[in-house]
């Protein structure tokens, strides 16, 4: 057992898979010699050499396209798109190429690859380096979307993503890179499509992802300590595939559900989850399903403004308390 930071867990997970399978290769901007701009790939070049750990030019289409061609012909590439916002310049591969290839070729060709990105806000980087792009990615049949919130989940879900025969977008939260957690020794392999109940509760279900998970846990502590409201906090972890059973089971127990997301109000991932709950668990609900989101604005850079935009512990507490008392 070791205490690892979230960023160290990324390197640990990649190293675990590269050591296991020589077909696993890593490419991206600054990932080799510099160890990544987020220092999440430190030591991999030294351990696995320049044929398996590639510094690329600032060419996001070349990065994702090359990953795809390599994946189609037998490798298991891990491609880093530094800031998730940059998926915008190579979105063709996310939208048109990776997810459709297996279907269009009637199963002849798969794209077993992982796209890692630094996702999410809180770092005061402004509107083009702070977005949460889960909703950009989860709308395409054929693509999987995962986002861990703890170091141990980073290792296990990254391993699962690398071994998965389908393309996976793996969203690492930038504001979690420095956080620490216990990570067991030895190989760690998790399962895509599994949510985790991190805290049981009988009054309400909170569905969260990434940075919103620790904030939701803190909010649950406050709601219990100060208001006697018991919240069941679920780390959704994987949007595609989605652990609907875990989510609907919890809603059936608590009768209330709150999604906490960094996606903007307009068509964030919470809207799809709330839609599923409305379709399939309507009669379990004792009140409206509530989305706690970033407002429908580009993210501002200034700390005072960004803190107002992204759901805070206090906002989560107040919205749940207000909604349950209504």
């Amino acid at each position: 057992m070791a205490q690892l930071t979230y960023r160290e867990a990324v390197a640990r997970g990649i190293a675990q898979e590269m050591a296991r399978d020589e077909n696993v290769v890593l490419l991206g901007e600054d990932v080799a010699k510099a160890g990544g701009v987020f220092k999440a790939t430190v030591g991999l070049l030294e351990q696995f050499g320049p044929n398996r750990v590639l510094d690329t030019p600032i060419s996001e289409q070349a990065i994702l396209g090359a990953a795809m061609g390599a994946a189609m012909t037998g490798l298991r590439p891990i491609a880093e798109i530094m800031f998730a916002d940059f998926l915008g310049v190579c979105y063709d591969y996310i939208a048109n190429e990776f997810p459709k290839t297996r279907y269009m070729t009637n199963g002849q060709v798969g794209c077993p690859l992982v796209v890692r990105c630094g996702n999410g806000g809180g770092a005061r980087f402004g509107a083009q380096h702070s977005q949460s792009v889960e909703n950009w990615c989860m709308q395409f049949p054929g693509l999987k979307v995962v986002s861990p919130s703890s170091p141990v989940d980073v290792v296990g879900l990254l391993a699962a993503a690398v071994r998965d025969p389908d393309p996976v977008v793996f969203l690492e939260h930038k504001s979690l890179y420095a956080t620490k957690g216990e990570v067991p020794d030895g190989e760690i392999l998790d399962t895509l499509g599994t949510a985790k109940i991190l805290r049981p509760g009988r009054d309400a279900t909170i569905l969260a992802l990434g940075l919103m998970v620790p904030r939701s846990l803190q909010a649950a502590d406050v709601l219990w300590a100060e208001h006697g409201i018991g919240c069941e906090v679920i780390d959704v972890r994987s949007l595609v595939p989605l652990d609907t059973q875990c989510i609907l089971g919890s809603v059936a127990r608590t009768g209330r559900v709150f999604t906490v997301e960094e996606n903007p109000r307009q068509l964030g991932w919470g809207s799809e989850l709330v839609s599923i709950i409305a379709d399939e668990a309507f009669y379990d609900l004792d009140g409206p399903a509530v989305r706690i989101t970033t407002p429908n604005i580009p993210l501002p850079a200034a700390d005072a403004l960004e803190d107002l935009a992204i759901p805070s512990v206090n906002r989560i507490v107040e919205m749940i308390r207000h909604s349950l008392s209504a």
Binding site: S59, Q61, G65, M68, G69, A70, T73, L75
Partner: peptide, 9 residues
């Protein structure tokens, strides 16, 4: 770029 990836392999 996809052809590049196959060639890289």
């Amino acid at each position: 770029p996809i052809a590049c990836g196959a060639a890289w392999r």
